[in-house]
Amino acid sequence: MICASQQVFAQTRGELEAKRQAIQQEIDEINKIIRTTESKGRSALSEFEDLQYRIKATERLIQVNNQEANLLTREITSNANKIDRFRNELKQLKDDYEQMIQKSYRSKSNKSRIMFLFSSESFLQAYKRIQYMKQFAQYRKKQGVEVMAQTKTLQNLNSTLFEQRRDQEKILAENRQTKSRLVSDKNTQEQLLTSINKQKKKYAQELNQKQKEVSRIDREIDRLIREAIAIENKKVGSDAKATFKLTPEAKALAKDFANNKGKLPWPVKSGIVSMRFGERPHPIVKTIKIMSNGVRIDTEKNGIARAVFEGEVSQISKIPGANVVVMVRHGDYLSIYNNLQRVFVKSGDKVERGEELGEIGINSSSGKTTLIFQLFKNTSKLNPEQWIYKM
């Protein structure tokens, strides 16, 4: 908690605003996906999960809004204190300047200046008096400029303070509306949970069946990977079946891919991760373990899968229950794009980073447009969240 609060304090308003906009964009994506599936007879489990994504994102949005409002409070207090200080300084400057003008006015005649010079007891004293009059004139001019500068600074601070108070009120008003939507979502989710708990056995069976289907598809992908390794190795005279035999060019490509860990682009233009990598208990039916060898990304209808890095299309296969899978090789790394309903490439094609591979299909159980994305090094599973930028 201490580390988190220090990190928040160190964030600038620009950083918080960027984070707020990113979360709002995520919520907009979730809402868009929910709208496209509302009329498709989703199960209570799917509705609960959709609300859970939105609730978590909304809670993060409220947190960032609070952080930004608190930061504005500190800035407003700081600027209000500066304004008080500048007002006092400006008053003192004006008082000093007024006294100087009055003194200058009393002695402004040429006669008094000449008398001031002629009354000198020596040439050196006369010279020093000339220098004094010049310095006095320069100082008077400097004081006038400083009064104008302080006045301008005070005007700017007042303008900034007005904008900060306006921005703070806007954020607080948005937060009140966001909290109201959060309460509504939580109430709806609570009603869904009550409904699910009444039929927990039924949903447990449904989840078990889904996990069996996922495991079957994962086994088929594992088989396709070994098959791809064997085919590629045969081309270079190797009979290895678990690891790619790399040419110098393939080694260079693999090294380049590895150097981009954490910087690879998303395989879709926009979307949300609806299932993360690894094993975890189901959020509602805790007795069921959910295992995922990759990530599931819900995206817009007719969304397009894009290559995350340059490489070669190694395999294209039709898997029953998963539409078409496209496998792209990057040296001894593989990126896998599963659940495509239309494919724009063919085996052996060279593809570039960001190139369109195919149109993503509908997930029959959720009614959403879902890409199943996986990464492997040879036959070893990799967590895409560690490789894709900000996943």
Rank of each mutant, 00 (worst) to 15 (best):
L172E: 10
N197I: 02
R166W: 03
I171G: 02
T243P: 02
E206M: 15
E220T: 12
K212V: 01
N187M: 10
E213C: 06
A240M: 09
A173Y: 11
Q211G: 05
S238G: 01
Q168I: 02
N233T: 02
L182C: 03
K245L: 04
G237P: 07
L207P: 04
Q168K: 15
K241D: 00
V214L: 09
L207G: 02
A252R: 15
E227S: 15
K251F: 11
K202Q: 09
A204W: 05
I171V: 11
E227M: 13
K235Y: 00
I229N: 06
I231L: 14
E220R: 14
T194C: 03
T188G: 01
N156Y: 12
E163P: 01
I217R: 12
T160D: 14
F162Q: 13
A252P: 04
E220G: 02
T247Y: 10
V236E: 05
K245T: 13
R216F: 06
T194D: 07
N175G: 06
E213L: 12
Q189N: 10
K234C: 00
L182P: 04
T178E: 03
E190H: 12
E163M: 10
N187D: 08
T188C: 05
L182E: 01
S215T: 10
R166K: 14
L161C: 03
I171A: 02
E213A: 15
K251A: 07
L182N: 04
A230E: 08
I196N: 05
S184T: 09
E190C: 05
K234F: 10
S159L: 13
A228C: 08
T247C: 06
L224W: 08
I229H: 06
D239T: 12
T178I: 08
I217W: 07
I196V: 09
A250M: 14
A252H: 10
Q211N: 06
L224G: 01
E232G: 03
V214M: 09
S180L: 09
R219L: 07
N175P: 06
K200T: 05
D222R: 11
S238P: 06
F244P: 03
D218L: 04
Q199C: 02
A242F: 11
T160K: 15
N197E: 11
R226Y: 08
T243A: 07
T160Y: 12
F162K: 15
S159T: 12
S180W: 04
T160P: 01
R176W: 01
A204Y: 07
K202V: 04
Q168S: 08
E213D: 14
T178A: 08
L172C: 01
K251V: 05
Q177Y: 06
E206Q: 14
